[in-house]
């Protein structure tokens, strides 16, 4: 397109939006290194809040729990989701369209509704609150993301490759492990990273499903903010943002998410 004042204006607008998106996060990160607990300026560099955070047993326990839950969710959701994607791609059967539509509700229904419904149901069947309930909820939320991501990769898969392998005497397992899986590997990695991010960043469902005093990191942060926050929360929040952005950056590299195709 031609260079025109309008295009220049658009680019300035885009730049302003990027400032809007990143400025608060950068301010938070900066304040986590500021010595004053009341965000007083002038800025004085200090890593005290990170030291305080590292000494806070509650934060450390919650952080470890969050990472473990996210890892568990990732493994379960990736295995189940990949299997389902392969089946949805490979076979034609009645009800397939319905199964694909059923992936939509966990993403589209507000988490407040899903979370409270899980709480009510899990209590009714005796699971109650706690880490198992949180994992069950997180896997359900992550599954659609894994299936969509892996299916997107599969859609570019050439089925004749499988037929060729089979015609040359490969059995079903060999076809899967030597032809299909290597092709969809980037999709699986991206799906796994999405699953990790969904679980690690999940607040609403964890909030309703975790036992008080036995919470994940986002739940702990929410409780702390409502009590009146300290820069320790800044420090841990800065770490969380860095981790989840890094994970998503990797996921974007592995999946063909956006950009020119």
């Amino acid at each position: 397109m031609t260079r025109s004042p309008l295009v220049l204006l658009g680019k300035i607008w885009l730049a302003l939006i990027l400032v809007f998106l990143y400025a608060p996060i950068l301010v938070m990160a900066a304040m986590s290194f500021n010595a004053s607990p009341f965000y007083q300026l002038p800025f004085q560099f200090s890593t005290d809040w990170y030291a305080k955070m590292a000494g806070n047993q509650q934060i450390i326990t919650a952080a470890i729990r969050s990472v473990l839950i996210a890892c568990g969710t990732t493994v379960i959701a990736t295995c189940l989701g990949t299997a389902a994607s392969v089946a949805l791609f490979r076979y034609e059967f009645r009800g397939k369209r319905i199964l694909q539509v059923l992936l939509f509700p966990p993403i589209a229904i507000p988490w407040l509704i899903t979370g409270t419904a899980m709480l009510v149901f899990f209590f009714a069947i005796g699971i109650g609150r706690g880490t198992p309930a949180v994992v069950i909820g997180h896997v359900a939320l992550a599954l659609p993301y894994v299936i969509v991501t892996v299916s997107a990769r599969l859609s570019s898969f050439d089925v004749t490759l499988e037929e060729a392998a089979r015609s040359m005497g490969a059995n079903a397992w060999t076809v899967l492990s030597r032809v299909t899986l290597p092709w969809i590997a980037p999709g699986i990695v991206a799906g796994a990273l999405f699953a990790f991010a969904v679980s690690f960043d999940q607040f609403v469902v964890s909030y309703f499903l975790s036992e008080p005093g036995d919470s994940t990191l986002p739940v702990l942060i929410y409780t702390a903010i409502r009590k009146g926050f300290t820069p320790e929360i800044n420090a841990i929040s800065t770490i969380i943002v860095t981790v989840s952005m890094a994970v998503m950056f990797l996921a974007a590299r592995f999946s063909k998410f956006g950009g020119s195709r």
Partner: peptide
């Protein structure tokens, strides 16, 4: 494009909290 999308995938609670500071 990646820069615009990236914040969406970072923790929403933490981003709301950062506005509380600002």
């Amino acid at each position: 494009f990646l820069m615009v999308i990236l914040p969406f995938w970072s923790n929403s609670l933490v981003r709301i909290f950062s506005w509380a500071i600002v």
